Structure formats: structure tokens, C-alpha cells
Amino acid sequence: MSDSNTTDFTNPSIFILLGIPGLEAAHIWISIPFCAMYTIAVLGNFTILFIINRDPSLHGPMFYFLCMLAVTDLVTSTSTLPKMLSIFWFNSREINFSACLTQMYFIHCFSAMESGILVAMAFDRYVAICHPLRHSTILTNSVVAKIGLAVVLRSGILALPYPFLARQWPYCRTNIIPHFCCGHIAVVKLACADISISSYYGLFNLLSVIGMDVFIIIMSYTLILRAIFQLPTKDARLKTFGTCISHLCAIFALYIPDFFNSFTQRFGQNIPVHFRILFASVYLLVPPVLHPIIYGVRTKQIRGRLIQLFFL
């Protein structure tokens, strides 16, 4: 279905994804780093899952949360990157309306899930540093499973309004989405109706869910840093803080692009479209790429198993 300004249609059967508007001539070249990053994300996260599954000594709370993060990264990147690459390589721009809404749900659900897992990992770091003798009794397998279930349910329920709101709007102007994926705002901006509810819900979700998660993480690290500064020696303080570096890197890799992407999509009309979309791809792809690298390099147990796996 092509762009139409005269024919009314509601809930079109097909949307057209443009990829990165303004950079169509460079799509092939842009696809090279994206394909390489997606390959690294898939191989890296599967390697993390394989190592943790094979080694019983890694069956603990921190590594269970890391497995959840790896699965979330795999789903997040796979829900968007294959379609993006098909646009770049084969000019396959069409996407079914229902598939578009499904992709929208997966993007927002698993992005929120990733944030919830980082909160769970912050809690693990807090217990490990502030209550080390009680770590195994506080974070039992049952507690970890309940935390994981709570994260999944919260993300799944709060992401449901996105496709439902998008489905109810009439799309009577165009079915062309100037993006490489069906993000909520990118889709509802095409509606010929007042989409204030969709916009406000997205902003509410960002500020309440992500904002609450960031607040909890800040509070956790305030208590962690207070405990670290009470340690008797500089070496002990540095060693203890070093156990948090991987988690802090993962936090910055997710939240900085997330907030920037969300606000530029809503309020960045003066920012070039291709720049906003390129940054959206950073938000979706960079965390799944960085997480296995960060934890593979910074976590001694995983680094040791990686060396054994590939070099011994």
C-alpha cells in the first residue's frame, strides 16, 4: 500500500518502513556495522548463557540475573535488527499491521524488563556489600525467581497499552513510517486523531517506570558507597567498588540512550530525523552488544571460563 492523502483507511493492513530517511543511499554501508554489532550481540549473549549453564559454580543470584539480562538483550535486538537489515539489504520495507503492533509490544516490554533486571542486580550488589553474611539467606533461589517473575509481569502488563492505543487510532493520511521499526511514537504520529493519550501514557511510563528504577538504583548505590567508605583500607574500598563497575557500565549503557531517545522523539523536532533514528538504533542495539563484553571482561569467573572455552 502506497502513501495516500486522499483515500481514508483505518488500521491499514500494511505499513511501510523507510529505514533511515535521508540516508537511503548509504543504507548498504550503514548495514555493515549494524550487522557486525548484531552478530556480536547474539554470539556474546549466547556465550554468557552457555557458560553460566555449564558451570555449577556460577549458579548464584548475580549470574541468574545476568542470564535474564542476556535473554532480554537477545529478544530486544532480534525484534528489530533483522527487519532493519532486510530494509537495508533487500529493500523489504513492508510490515503487516499486526506484526508492527507485535514488534512495538516487544520493544517496549523488553526495554522495561531490562531496566527492571538492572534494578534487581543493584539489589544484589547492595546485599552482597552491605549484608555479605546474609547474602545467601536473603537472595535464595526462590527469592530470585519471584523477583524475575515480578519484573516480567510488570513489563508485560505496562507495555500492553502501547499496541492497544495504537490500534484504536484511524490512519487516514499515510501508512509510511519514517523509521526502521514500529516504535510507539513513530506509529501513532501517523494517526489523523488526537493522540494525546498515547503520548501522555508513553511519558508516564518513562517517568514512572524508568524514573522509579533509576531512583531505586541511586538509593542502592548511595547505601553501597556509604558501606564502601566505611571499609578500613583503600585497597579494600577499591576492590569492593570494583565489583560494581560492570553493573554501573550496564546502567549507563541503557539509561543515557533511553532518556535521550525518548525525549528527542517527543520534543526534538529541530533535531534532524536521521540523527534521531540513528540514536534510536544505538538505544536498541548498543546495550545488547556491550553487556556480554562488559561482564565477560569485568567478571573474573566468566572471564576465566571464556579463556578456558576459547584458548584451552
Score class of each variant (00 low, 15 high):
Leu203Tyr: 10
Ser198Pro: 01
Lys189Met: 14
Leu149Arg: 11
Arg134Glu: 15
Cys192Leu: 03
His131Ser: 12
Val209Asp: 12
Cys172Ala: 13
Ser136Gln: 13
Trp169Asn: 12
Phe164Trp: 11
Ser136Thr: 14
Ala166Pro: 05
Cys172Ser: 14
Ser208Cys: 11
Val152Lys: 10
Ile177His: 08
Ser198Leu: 04
Ser208Asn: 09
Ala166Trp: 02
Arg173Thr: 13
Leu165Cys: 06
Ile176Phe: 06
Leu203Pro: 06
Ser142Thr: 13
Leu165Asn: 02
Tyr126Phe: 07
Pro163Ser: 02
Gly156Gln: 02
Gly202Ala: 04
Arg167Glu: 11
Leu133His: 15
Ala145Gly: 02
Ile185His: 08
Phe164Asp: 05
Ala186Gln: 13
Cys181Asp: 12
Leu190Asn: 00
Ile157Leu: 12
Val209Phe: 14
Leu149Gln: 10
His131Glu: 15
Phe164Cys: 13
Val143Phe: 13
Thr137Asp: 09
Cys181Gly: 08
Ser199Asn: 13
Tyr201Thr: 01
Pro161Gln: 01
Ile197Asn: 10
Gly156Pro: 01
Ala159Glu: 00
Asp194Ser: 08
Trp169Cys: 13
Leu207Ser: 10
Pro178Trp: 08
Val188Asn: 06
Gly183Val: 00
Leu158His: 09
Val143Arg: 12
Cys130Gly: 03
Pro161Trp: 01
Cys181Ala: 15
Ser198Ala: 13
Thr140Arg: 08
Arg134Trp: 14
Ala193Arg: 03
Ile138Val: 12
Lys189Ile: 08
Leu153Gln: 00
Lys189Asn: 14
Ala193Pro: 00
Phe204Ile: 04
Cys181Asn: 14
Ser199Cys: 11
Cys182Ile: 03
Ser196Phe: 10
Phe164Leu: 15
Ala159Ile: 00
Ala191Gln: 02
Ala191Phe: 01
Asp194Tyr: 11
Gly156Phe: 08
Asp194Cys: 06
Ile147Asp: 00
Ile176Glu: 13
Tyr201Gly: 03
Val143Cys: 08
Thr137Trp: 02
Ser136Gly: 11
Ser208Lys: 02
